[in-house]
Design a protein around this nucleic acid. Structure first.
Lengths: 362, 362
DNA sequence: GTGAAAGCGCTAACAA
DNA sequence: TTGTTAGCGCTTTCAC
């Protein structure tokens, strides 16, 4: 069932064939396809029938060469293994499809060289627009974008002072949000299992947000309480193991995403550490499966599907293909479930005081 | 940051520009790009420099028109919200990228009309190959494939007698595998929370496999013990609620995938039903998060990433772009964790006997 | 080893 | 309303 050799170029039915059959010129057939209203009912009918009879399929490549537009958008995302990118890419595709655009997808797997290659390939193929994930990109990537003049949108992150087209939310703010929640609960030793920050400004921003929130509260994110791990259950497991092995372990652990948090939660369970009584654990992303955590994770909710959808709308707008409004900055919210009750024995006094110390010493 | 109007067609650096600058003909520049070995060292050098200086980027569309090949593959998948399709599409992309191909992705969301549209769009854009998920497709889809003569591979499923190019595994066999496991444990009243089978032959096949296995054992998958739900946690929750509301509820529930199983497990927990002591629950797909089930799910493992990778290899092979070997039929295996112990009180006698009846009556 | 010329299939002025 | 014509930027014989 798998012939080893390529087919010869298939005999193709061209617009010229249709023209001959319908007894009209090529231009007329072309119009029939693009602006049928510009034709008389009779000829349109003739062309349509001829086209149908021959099973004509328009040659998009030739059309693209003639018009200078491919009706194709290229998205370079980190990976499809992470549900947040998969889901947002899915809704991006739906939005684009609605407007008659096709989506090229490339994954760079957190390798900036791969991103450059993908952008170059997209431009070379003549995409009408490009979607990139995150704010930080290799200079070469931005140069390609600039020189080719291909419209683009950066997605999954934004910043108040962003000077480029972006759709997303502020990951630093998200980090602050969850850290402030923990601080309000009285935690003073907060640790973090972050995602790998190299090549991932979203992960870096979340970490930075947590750090700033703690600093603002006169606390500090101790270097020995920060660990970076890939977004996987095992990453969470390893991360928590490391943090708990510290001389003075944290009373709360902020995880860079829900998968890490679920991994950490699993390990806490295995070690018979009561969450949240003895230890608080939080996540990011609010994935559907997050509620499977036991206890369910307190996390920061990002509207994954909306991000992709709005990104598509933003791009289409730049292309003049829609007048739809869209949000450049998307709402996020802290979803408090119950993996973050205050540490055991925390009192009002301690809450305000400075002498708080982690309860668990293992 | 979002200009509302489209750019004018950007001034582009063509191959002709490079030719002029290098003082050679267009043909020579073209050769420099495609078969550099056919040029003298000196001219190649000149062309290369000129090309670099001008920042020339080849015009893929024009090249495609001239060569009749776009170096693009189109994949029509059900949805990116389901991790199995996201992950396999990701590895497909990696495989294709390795061979210099770009991937167009369209999601049909289990709508066969959408699939037809996508295939038509792909063919129109001149893709060199197409990937479709599943064995069953609308006649129109297959007709388009046949008439356009575009090579294609059907993925995520195969069957011993499949007469089309497929890469995947036998979902019926997978269904049988898990049902036989339950039968061996002595279950006689087995229920199933299947995925929506309409437009999804994988879901239908899994159901069929379970049904056949039971039939072979002289048992029966009672219609009132079969419920179809979308692949979501809530689907699992609703499904189990329905099955448990039956006059004689099942002692084991086969879920159409791991998400459904996790949802069912969650509900069992909520109802204080001990799994597996009082009720067995199983899944399909063996997603990483499946181990978060409590107890961890017994499930059928499918190698998601390999499916995409092998699909890519199969397609490239048809295109004559690789000689790599690949497996058309992929291995699957039953992963027995511990959500499927026999029902409480099941004895050897009962195991062999005929009078077994579900223990739980609620 | 290199160049000239003829398209690939379509669209878009401009004419009629 | 319809046809004629000239490309879009590249590849590819076929000469030289």
């Amino acid at each position: 069932m798998f012939p080893g050799r390529p087919r010869s170029r298939p005999a193709i039915i061209t617009l010229a064939n249709v023209a001959r059959k319908a007894g009209v010129s090529k231009a007329t057939v072309s119009r029939a396809l693009t602006r049928p209203d510009k034709l008389s009912k009779a000829t349109l009918e003739r062309v349509t029938r001829a086209s149908k009879q021959l099973g004509y399929v328009s040659h998009g490549v030739a059309r693209a060469l003639a018009t200078g537009t491919t009706h194709t958008i290229g998205a370079v995302i980190p990976t499809l293994e992470n549900a947040i990118y998969a889901v947002s890419t899915g809704s991006l595709e739906r939005r684009l499809d609605q407007a008659g655009y096709l989506l090229l997808v490339a994954c760079h797997e957190f390798n900036s060289q791969a991103e450059i290659r993908a952008v170059r390939a997209f431009i070379s193929r003549g995409v009408d627009g490009i979607v990139l994930v995150g704010l930080a990109h290799a200079p070469e990537t931005m140069q390609l974008l600039r020189e080719s003049r291909v419209p683009y949108v950066l997605t999954w992150s934004t910043r108040p002072q962003a000077r480029k087209p972006t759709v997303g939310f502020d990951n630093r703010y998200a980090g602050r949000l969850i850290a402030e929640h923990l601080i309000r609960l009285g935690h003073q030793r907060v640790g973090m299992i972050a995602g790998i920050t190299k090549g991932n400004d979203r992960a870096a921003d979340r970490l930075m947000g947590v750090r700033h929130a703690l600093a603002n509260a006169g606390l500090k994110l101790s270097p020995e309480l920060v660990v970076e791990r890939p977004y996987s259950l095992d990453g969470g497991t390893e991360g928590i193991a490391l943090l708990l092995s510290r001389h003075r372990p944290p009373t709360a652990i902020v995880c860079g995403n829900d998968i890490l948090a679920l991994g950490a939660l699993r390990e806490a369970h295995a070690r018979k550490i009561a969450v949240p009584r003895e230890l608080s654990i939080t996540g990011f992303d609010d994935m559907p499966i997050a509620e499977l955590g036991n206890p369910p994770l307190t996390t920061v909710h990002f509207p994954m599907a909306e991000i992709g959808w709005h990104t598509g709308t933003a791009l289409l707008r730049t292309l003049g293909k829609t007048e739809d409004a869209f949000e450049s900055e998307l709402p996020i919210r802290l979803v408090v479930r119950n993996s973050t009750a205050p540490p055991e024995g925390l009192s009002d006094f301690e809450f305000k005081g400075k002498a708080f110390s982690g309860r668990r010493q293992r």
